[in-house]
Computed example of a mutant assay.
Amino acid sequence: MLHAFVYNEIVILVRHWFEVSIKDGHLEHGARIELRLRSPQPHRGTESAAQKIVADQPLWRADLFDRIDGVHGGFEAAHFHPRFHDAEPCERHWADEVKAAPWDWLHDQLSDIAGVAAAAGVRLRDPAADSEQVRADAPAIVAVARSRAAIQCGTKEQCYAWTQDAAGSVHLMLDRLARPELLDRDRVSPWLASRNAAHRAP
């Protein structure tokens, strides 16, 4: 389930995410907010025709996560990725303010979206336009992100329902575990079931 805020040059995606650590099998979930660059598309059809919206290139990501084995609502795994290399995020960046006041921090980032893009290596063609619009929408974007926070997701079934479209990514994590014996198999059972069904499909 994705929420998209689409502007002139950028798109902001908000969703719930579920993460399995490949290293030790610990589990994280919470709100993921991603900034993407919108690719201009040639006009198609008549003046009334629906147009393509393409937002393929990621620039920045915030993962405001809880550890499932940690404090509920504690944001112990909250971090961000200030840039991408093609489709791959850079290493996690940790900052005290991201854990201590994640929603205030997110609002601050959205209030300078041109600066966030520049730090990711992209200068917007008209930075003032998108900056002004995103700044005005920042409270609404933060509200949607809060609605997809870990504290709003109380069961494994709800977590799976909110992330079912990205189940393939979780399957890859499960397939690459360094210590599979450490995995909480009950907590990930919906993803294990969907992975097994995918493997059985002809």
Rank of each mutant, 00 (worst) to 15 (best):
V116C: 03
A128Y: 11
A136I: 00
A138I: 07
W105N: 05
V122T: 13
A129Y: 05
A114W: 03
D104Q: 09
Q133W: 02
D126V: 07
A140S: 15
W105M: 14
A143Q: 15
D112Y: 07
Q109S: 14
A120I: 13
V134D: 09
H107A: 14
A136Q: 02
A138D: 13
A114D: 03
A129K: 06
L124A: 15
W103H: 04
A140G: 11
D126Y: 10
L106H: 02
D126N: 15
A129C: 01
V122D: 14
H107V: 04
D108N: 10
S111Q: 04
A119W: 05
D130V: 01
A140R: 13
D130N: 00
R123N: 12
A120D: 09
A101S: 08
A140P: 04
V142D: 04
G115Y: 02
V142Q: 04
D130E: 06
G121M: 02
A118I: 06
P139G: 14
A120Q: 09
A140Y: 08
G121C: 05
I141L: 15
A117D: 12
L106C: 06
V142T: 08
A101P: 02
A138W: 07
D104A: 06
G121N: 04
P127R: 08
L106W: 02
P102R: 02
A140F: 09
W105F: 11
H107W: 03
D112I: 03
L124W: 06
A129R: 01
Q109G: 11
H107C: 06
Q109K: 12
A114G: 00
D137T: 08
P102L: 15
H107F: 08
A129W: 05
A138H: 06
Q109H: 13
A136V: 01
A143S: 11
A120C: 14
G121F: 02
A119L: 07
A120S: 10
V142C: 10
A101W: 07
A114F: 02
D126C: 15
P127Q: 05
I113Q: 01
A140V: 09
R135I: 12
W105D: 14
G121L: 04
Q109W: 06
L124P: 06
D112W: 05
A119Q: 08
A117H: 12
